[in-house]
């Protein structure tokens, strides 16, 4: 598995993601700069969390114009796996690689907490090793994570099995109390039609080792390696 993490000015989960991919997952991993225009040869491209360009204007709104994003779009079209985490998810939405948009959290506050995630699809390359009946625990940390799309899009996402993670209670029920940000249908992660582009708000790179309080995030690396 050859992977890269794209670094934007203001990315702040880039090194965490690099550590998880390289040291924990054992992938051959590079850091690539947002101005780089040649991203050929990677099996996995990760757009990490953070505040690219300071979240100025709107989270992800400026990063979508970065030279590297053209290459990400081209790679996605070739079937390369693309994973956007947190700010990376926001960037993928702004770039049109995934449908919908992120609104400010309904609390109007930045929110950090560990959440429960139900795995709604194990047919993606990112989740094929997950146990669909086991609820995963991962941290979230964002101010703009309220997923929004029109009713038709939400319905399509559900019918096509493109909702990958849903915020739930301990028992996997998508109740309102388990929704940390006001996302429609408690949606935490979605894929594109082809299934090779995943956007997720929780941070798997922060929970891939037992010492950090959980290693459910490593399920994603294991799935990608499988």
């Amino acid at each position: 598995m050859k992977a890269c993490v794209i670094v934007f000015p203001g990315s702040n989960c880039d090194m965490d993601t690099f550590h998880a991919l390289k040291t924990v997952a054992g992938f051959d991993t590079d850091l690539r700069w947002h101005r780089d225009t040649d991203l050929a040869g990677y099996d996995l491209i990760v757009i990490p969390g953070g505040f690219s360009y300071g979240d100025h204007l709107r989270a992800g709104a400026i990063a979508r114009f970065a030279p590297a994003l053209r290459e990400v779009a081209a790679a996605a079209a070739r079937g390369v796996r693309v994973l956007g985490i947190c700010n990376g998810f926001q960037i993928l939405l702004e770039a049109g690689l995934l449908p919908g948009a992120m609104l400010r959290n309904n609390t109007l506050q930045f929110r950090h907490e560990w959440v429960n995630l139900r795995v709604d699809s194990t047919s993606t390359p990112f989740t094929r090793e997950c146990d669909p009946v086991r609820v995963l625990r991962m941290p979230i940390a964002h101010g703009e994570g309220s997923y929004f799309a029109d009713a038709e899009t939400i319905s399509r996402l559900k019918h096509e099995g493109r909702v990958v993670f849903t915020y739930t209670d301990d028992n996997g029920r998508a109740v309102r109390e388990a929704n940390p940000n006001g996302s429609l249908s408690n949606i935490a992660a979605i894929t594109n039609e082809r299934g090779n582009v995943l956007g997720m708000m929780p941070h798997p790179e922060r929970c891939s080792e037992p010492v950090l309080g959980g290693e459910d995030g490593a399920m994603i690396w294991r799935s990608l390696a499988a």
Partner: peptide, 14 residues
């Protein structure tokens, strides 16, 4: 108070 702070970025928080 602290849930409005990112406590785990850096992936070092035990």
């Amino acid at each position: 108070v602290y849930r409005t702070y990112d406590q785990t970025v850096g992936s070092n928080t035990v």
